[in-house]
Nucleic acid binder design. Structure first.
Lengths: 216, 216
DNA sequence: ACCTGAACACCGTTCAAGT
DNA sequence: ACCTGAACACCGTTCAAGT
């Protein structure tokens, strides 16, 4: 076939700047260079544009980071409001967690901008689903909010797991805090927990079990 | 008694720098000037010291931010491993959430360093409590991990609530994403959710109910 | 040996000057 | 009117020079 793929430039160089292209390039840059590598100058270089040209499509760097976080939640598999709520909420939670885990460098930014247009759309769909299942709008909103908070918090802890090399240092540091050489009985279980946060599903099961109980 | 209190200066000016004093001053500075106001130079000014003197007690700025996050968790009311587990976990969760909510500017930093010596000590105590209540160490670690993740995620969402003035903009933005003028049935409930995240206790109750069920 | 502060290599963003 | 890029006012951190 002679047609060019999707959104490729018509000429050799990238097409005009757009918010969409900027966000896309910024995500690619973060993946490659980490959050510290994401500077407005480096981003412009990536886009083959003048450093200031980006500001025509983005208010400032915070605006850009917000748009990047929003992008994490697009194209989630759609919710069927008439299907069973529980498997759908479970699937959704796992999917969101995967998106977050795939871009750990973005989590601190996400932590200062979790409320985006897409997360609103998502919450709206989820509330609809839970209301059809028999919950009050208030219960449904609170219930989904709890799941969302859990997923976000889990991803944050998961992403921050220190490298194995730091285990001993962490242990020593904790003992210093306790001002004792005598480790508490389950310090090692705690270190284990922090270094490979239990099953994601364990906490999710607890929440879903709680929600299920509310429906009877 | 004639002895001076703990670590007070002997003369009128602040005493020698110490890691402790630096962290304390940094927290005060964040409270007053926000996370952007926390610069190594401003911190040194606060401490009446040379900008570079701080580096004698702190490896770099990330090290400082980590120590600040750790500080959030000190002096939590102690856990009684022989007491009832449920009211204690509930109290602990609320207390931690309060500490986080009191310093919203620090949450993005916390999101990149939630695993600190103090959070380890905390997890260790909590695991001990749950094991005494009859859970396996694995269940106990996973269970407390779930509660901790939830608390952290909730605090993050809570801190990021946009100012009321942004409601309409957010709503419009969500509709643009949906590419429709016809709002989904529970969009407003979702906006309400994101703007005053249900009860903290609602999600906590779900988790505790789930844990309780595991003990029977 | 310890401490200082000038200097380096950046950064996000403004704004005057160009087209 | 739009776009550019030099310049501003910072930043975290290095390191040579002082005590």
């Amino acid at each position: 076939m002679s047609m060019s793929t999707g959104s490729k430039p018509r000429r050799g160089r990238p097409p005009r700047l757009s918010r969409e292209r900027i966000v896309e390039a910024a995500l690619a840059l973060v993946d490659r260079a980490g959050i510290d590598g994401l500077t407005m100058r480096a981003l412009a270089r990536e886009l083959d544009a003048d450093p200031m040209a980006v500001y025509r499509h983005v208010r400032d760097k915070d605006d850009l980071l917000g748009a990047m976080c929003d992008q994490l939640l697009v194209e989630l598999p759609p919710i069927d409001p008439d299907g069973d709520w529980e498997p759908q909420v479970r699937r959704l939670a796992r999917e969101i967690r995967e998106r977050f885990a795939a871009r750990p460098a973005l989590l601190p930014a996400l932590a200062s901008a979790p409320v985006t247009p897409m997360s609103l759309v998502l919450a709206s769909d989820a509330v609809t689903l839970l209301v059809r299942a028999g919950m009050s709008p208030h219960e449904a909103a609170g219930g989904f909010g709890a799941v969302f908070s859990y997923v976000l918090g889990f991803a944050v802890v998961e992403a921050a797991i220190p490298p194995p090399a730091d285990h001993d240092a962490l242990r020593a540091s904790a003992l210093r805090h306790l001002e004792t050489d005598d480790p508490p009985p389950h310090l090692d279980a705690a270190i284990e927990l922090m270094n490979s946060p239990g099953d994601f599903d364990l906490g999710l099961d607890l929440l879903l079990a709680g929600l299920r109980a509310r429906l009877r």
